[in-house]
């Protein structure tokens, strides 16, 4: 503390092409989540530019950012962030309430998306009645509900066992194949198999794969 400035990201210059599957790798504290939240307009950079499809996120006010998130982005979180009092269907349809979509359309759309993630028969289950993998797939369905161009996933498999983690990865990969832009922050190396692009972060800097690997080895040797 003591007023010390922590630079979570420093001089990071990345470009993400439409239709790519980008994996951001990095150890804890490397700033990879910060990168994701900045891209998602959930956090603000102290300086620098962030633009998505030519729109400057760093220049938007809170309201404009909220509307931009609603239209353009879908988030998937490590801890799912489902609303415990709502069933799967309601959770998926929840973001559409803010867009003012009527209840009937919400239901149809949510059912459609639940089917897409293979949970059509779990529609009226509450999060507590679903496994971790199922919860995360509900969360992915929710992220898709406003037909976003960009899917941002923060450690989507972090809380999952290997097999349900794989299932979630496959769902994300399917989305990419269906033409969406996906960006996943993870330190699960399996994710790289699905990726078209990789970004390696170390202490807030973008580094090459070679440097990343050697740093990882170095860390092992110190231990």
């Amino acid at each position: 503390m003591g007023g010390q400035v922590v630079r979570a990201l420093d001089n990071v210059d990345v470009e993400i092409e439409e239709g790519t599957f980008t994996v951001v790798m990095g150890p804890s504290g490397s700033g990879k989540s910060t990168l994701l939240y900045l891209l998602g307009g959930l956090d603000r950079a102290t300086s620098g530019e962030i633009s998505i499809e030519g729109e400057r996120l760093d220049q938007m006010d809170e309201n404009a950012l909220a509307l931009f998130r609603r239209r353009t982005m879908g988030f998937v979180f490590q801890s799912f962030n489902l609303i415990p009092s709502m069933n799967a269907l309601e959770n998926v349809g929840f973001p559409m309430q803010f867009a003012g979509t009527n209840a009937k359309q919400r239901k149809t759309r949510a059912q459609e998306l639940l089917a897409q993630v293979g949970l059509e028969n779990r529609a009226d289950h509450r999060p507590s009645e679903l496994s971790g993998g199922q919860q995360q797939r509900v969360a992915i369905a929710r992220a898709l509900v406003n037909a976003p161009k960009l899917i941002l996933a923060d450690e989507p498999t972090g809380n999952l066992d290997t097999s349900s983690g794989s299932a979630v990865m496959r769902v994300l990969s399917d989305l990419h194949k269906a033409g969406r832009t996906v960006l996943v922050v993870t330190h699960d190396p399996r994710m790289t198999h699905f990726a078209t692009h990789r970004i390696y972060l170390l202490d807030g800097r973008v580094v090459g794969e070679a440097e990343y690997e050697s740093a990882a080895l170095e860390a092992l040797q110190i231990e």
């Binding site: 998602g40 959930l42 809170e62 309201n63 909220a66 509307l67 998130r69 609603r70 239209r71 988030f75 979180f77 801890s79 962030n81 609303i83 929840f94 973001p95 803010f98 867009a99 929710r142 406003n146």
Partner: peptide, 16 residues
Amino acid sequence: TREIGLMKAVGATNRN
């Protein structure tokens, strides 16, 4: 708090 964060992430405005 996290629910509020989630609402904002899925496009709830401050007014919502």
